[in-house]
Nucleic acid binder design. Structure first.
Lengths: 258, 258
DNA sequence: AACGCCGTTCATCAATACCGAACAGGGAGT
DNA sequence: ACTCCCTGTTCGGTATTGATGAACGGCGTT
């Protein structure tokens, strides 16, 4: 492990969590290294455009280079590029917004967001990072992870973001079991009050889950008895098509049940 | 300059430009360091989630951590957060898409994209990086940079992306002069065939340009004699309001004319 | 006016990151 | 089926290089 790089990333992540900018001293305290060290790291990161120094205060904040790299990741992402058309299709078909996400460090990273058609103002959620246990996408993916990783997840911290968020491992276990039976996952205002989600897993060539795809919208519209099943079927169907696009075997996901 | 960090960023940038993934050997060749060195860098970057190893081929590609950092940058970006509402306003007012951008390394980075209202399918351009001389945003910003930076830009390489792209420094100089007179910049299919742009600069507290804001849309609609002036005035007006929001002095930009 | 805080620089020292050579696995070509 | 070559990977020694404490200059505050 290259220490300098590790620390540089630590700096970036600290800058990402902290309010707009941080000073050298505060940064040094937070990550526990000497001030000049942090300074050197910041200077090189600045030269690379990953960090910018605020002219007035001398403090540092994240730089635009990160957006370029982030976008390059998204563009190179096979799941995402393949998912775009499917997501649009599903959005027009169901009249709801569609999210495509992948698993990252106990969170779901939204890599694509197809807006609800014809709708009013909508915030773009691409790039958002959501606790895995609070969204349908997270449950859909987690359910099909290898058993050991699933246990790690359940053993770790389960964040709550609304009153409806589930932080009880036992309840999650039964939900995940059910997801494996039905092939799709639900969340009921566990991420956003008033919003629900329906998601299904996506598999790759090797038959492992690489991400998920799902609907997001008002509870009333998504989970009403009339619409619910129809939506779930549509989501599952599109997710399966996407998986086939990625070269997944026809019965991908079955083996993960163990 | 911390060498290890510099090299790590070099690795990331190389992975960003190259097609999906790169092998250790090829990467080592490209950046001119020994193979084990690159390997060590990749391993630490992988541990940080900035890089992922493709399970089948063993090659490496960018990782999701970059998206998280990139989004953190966007969220912490004062210009962007303040611009969102203004951009929406301008989009509904003019019926065209609105871009907000900043300057980065001879390119314009689009940090916000307000969709054309009610429209059909549109690609999200947030995160796109465009040669400065090929878009109205770039010219609007460049025109108000300090004279010396402007000369650097004009002296450097001027990329062309369409047949209409301007790579003649002399022509750009006169265009920039005109931008300073009128307060807005134009581009006529210099970035995308069939699309034009109208943009104006945005200033901050200290009176320096920090970015720009502009319309993007079909030439016929944007540059037709009837609409053109109306659009330009709207853009300039909104950009000025945004500047005031950021604390810019009322006559910001005048001093840059020197 | 003096203090304290901050970002920055410098020179010293040792940790540490770099490298050459060697290993293990896979694929392609015979 | 075997070989060869190429890949990603490991190892240990060397000196490069990055970390550090102490000191500087600017700024806002006291």
């Amino acid at each position: 492990m290259v220490q300098a790089v590790h620390r540089a990333m630590h700096v970036l992540r600290e800058l990402a969590t902290a309010t707009p900018r941080l000073g050298v001293t505060e940064l040094a305290d937070r990550i526990g290294v000497a001030k000049p060290t942090v300074h050197a790291l910041l200077r090189t990161l600045e030269a690379e455009g990953m960090v910018v120094q605020h002219r007035e205060t001398g403090k540092y904040q994240l730089g635009p280079g990160l957006v370029v790299l982030g976008n390059a990741y998204l563009d190179s992402h096979e799941l995402r590029t393949r998912a775009v058309t499917w997501a649009d299709l599903l959005a027009t078909q169901t009249g709801a917004a569609v999210w495509v996400g992948v698993f990252t460090d106990r969170h779901i990273l939204v890599v694509h967001h197809a807006f609800r058609p014809g709708g009013s103002v909508q915030v773009l959620e691409t790039g958002a990072s959501l606790p895995w246990n609070t969204c349908a996408l997270g449950k859909a993916i987690a359910a099909f992870l290898p058993a050991e990783r699933r246990e790690e997840l359940l053993a770790g911290e389960l964040l709550r973001v609304t009153g409806a968020s589930i932080d009880d491992p036992a309840r999650l276990v039964t939900q995940l079991d059910r997801v494996r039976e039905t092939g799709y996952a639900l969340d009921d205002q566990e991420l956003t009050l008033g919003d629900a989600g329906i998601a299904a897993p996506v598999f790759d060539r090797s038959g492992e889950v690489v991400g998920g795809l799902g609907l997001v919208g008002p509870v009333e519209r998504l989970l009403a008895d009339s619409a619910r099943q129809e939506c779930a079927i549509a989501v599952r169907e599109v997710a399966r098509s996407l998986s086939r696009d990625l070269g997944a075997p026809r019965n991908a996901g079955l083996r993960a049940c163990s």
